[in-house]
Amino acid sequence: MPKNIFTRGRSLPLNRKHKIAVAGVGTLGAAAVALTAVPASGQTTTSEAAPTAKVAYSTEQIQDVHAGVTGQLAGASQKVASIEAKQEAATKTTSTKKAAAEKAAEKRTAKESTSRSAERAERAEAKQFPKKSYADNLDGWIREARDIMKKHDIPGTYEGIHRNIIRESSGNPKAINDWDINAINGIPSKGLLQVIPPTFEAYHVPGTSKNIYDPVANIVAACNYAADKYGTMDNVDSAY
């Protein structure tokens, strides 16, 4: 066994063999450092080029991310625009419906107000001019006919109307003449004052019956005709 080259408390001088061993260890350490410094396959061997490669790679990543974000923003903008358009359309629809409802409400209010005014006017008129009731006989028919004639400015006294009725039909509202020239021509005289249908239709007064046999309607139409042709029924003393 070789002797220990170290002694407690002091060092001994290196001989040639020891120096060669130390040199070998140094050489091996240098080689390890050199191997560690060798770059991997495909990497740049200069210290200045490595940062450039990293920067280029990072720029591509940023460009990809930027493109993705830009696309997302564009899609989001389209969605926002679509939502805003729908909201605007909904607002317009709501406004249109509200305006239509308000207009309809105004019309209803105006109509109701007009209706109430008309009702008040009718009640006032009814109170001022109470509706008369007439007897269902010759006297009642003449009186009702004269009240209607007054509203339409048709002249004729009670006596003149009564006199002509008695002569023409004897007071029978269903009387019909089936022998004179009118009957021969197919248009016989009818009713209390023996009016032919064409005359009744031409001088019919609105608000009265369109039935020629209705006593009141017959009297009013006949008096309207007599007023036009003779001035008044009072001037008629024979067939007219």
Score class of each variant (00 low, 15 high):
Lys3Ile: 06
Ile5Ala: 11
Ile5Cys: 07
Arg8Gln: 14
Arg8Pro: 06
Leu12Glu: 14
Lys17His: 12
His18Thr: 13
His18Ala: 15
Lys19Thr: 08
Ala21Phe: 11
Val22Cys: 12
Gly24Phe: 10
Gly26His: 10
Gly29Gln: 05
Ala30Val: 13
Leu35Val: 15
Ala37Gly: 03
Pro39Cys: 07
Ala40Leu: 13
Ala40Glu: 11
Gly42Trp: 05
Thr44Asn: 15
Thr45Pro: 07
Ser47Asp: 11
Glu48Met: 11
Thr52Pro: 00
Thr52Glu: 14
Lys54Pro: 05
Thr59Pro: 00
Thr59His: 13
Thr59Cys: 13
Glu60Pro: 04
Val65Tyr: 12
His66Arg: 10
Ala67Ser: 15
Val69Ser: 10
Thr70Arg: 14
Gly75Ile: 02
Ala76Gln: 12
Ala76Phe: 09
Gln78Val: 05
Lys79Arg: 08
Lys79Gln: 12
Lys79Trp: 03
Val80Leu: 14
Lys86Gly: 10
Gln87Cys: 03
Gln87Tyr: 05
Glu88Leu: 07
Ala89Pro: 03
Ala90Leu: 03
Ala90Phe: 01
Thr91Val: 09
Lys92Ala: 06
Lys92His: 03
Thr93Asn: 08
Thr93Arg: 06
Ser95Thr: 07
Ser95His: 06
Thr96Met: 13
Ala101Arg: 03
Ala101Thr: 05
Glu102Ser: 12
Glu102Ile: 01
Lys107Pro: 01
Arg108Glu: 13
Thr109Trp: 09
Lys111Asp: 12
Glu112Cys: 05
Thr114Pro: 00
Thr114Phe: 08
Thr114Tyr: 04
Ser115Trp: 05
Ser115Asp: 04
Ala118Thr: 05
Arg120Phe: 08
Ala121Ile: 02
Glu125Lys: 11
Gln128His: 10
Gln128Thr: 09
Pro130Val: 13
Pro130Tyr: 02
Ala135His: 03
Ala135Glu: 13
Asp136Lys: 13
Asn137Cys: 07
Leu138Thr: 02
Asp139Gly: 08
Gly140Thr: 11
Gly140Val: 08
Ile142Trp: 00
Arg146Ala: 01
Asp147Cys: 10
Ile148Gln: 09
Ile154Phe: 08
Pro155Arg: 02
Tyr158Gly: 10
Glu159Trp: 11
Gly160Ser: 12
Ile161His: 00
His162Phe: 11
Glu168Phe: 04
Glu168Arg: 07
Gly171Ile: 09
Gly171Trp: 09
Asn172Trp: 06
Lys174Ile: 04
Ala175Val: 10
Asn177Arg: 06
Trp179Ile: 12
Trp179Cys: 04
Trp179Ser: 14
Asn182Ile: 04
Asn182Tyr: 14
Ile184Gln: 15
Gly186Gln: 14
Pro188Arg: 11
Lys190Asp: 05
Lys190Trp: 02
Ile196Pro: 02
Ile196Arg: 00
Pro198Cys: 01
Phe200Cys: 08
Tyr203Gly: 05
His204Asp: 09
His204Met: 06
His204Pro: 07
Val205Trp: 02
Val205Asn: 05
Pro206Ile: 02
Thr208Lys: 03
Thr208Pro: 07
Thr208Ile: 02
Lys210Asp: 10
Tyr213Met: 12
Tyr213Leu: 04
Asp214Pro: 02
Pro215Ser: 03
Val216Gln: 08
Val216Cys: 02
Val216Ala: 06
Ala217Trp: 01
Ile219Ser: 01
Val220Gln: 05
Ala221Gln: 05
Ala227Ile: 01
Asp228Lys: 14
Asp228Gly: 07
Lys229Met: 11
Met233His: 05
Asn235Ser: 13
Val236Met: 09
Asp237Lys: 15
Ser238Glu: 12
Ala239Asp: 15
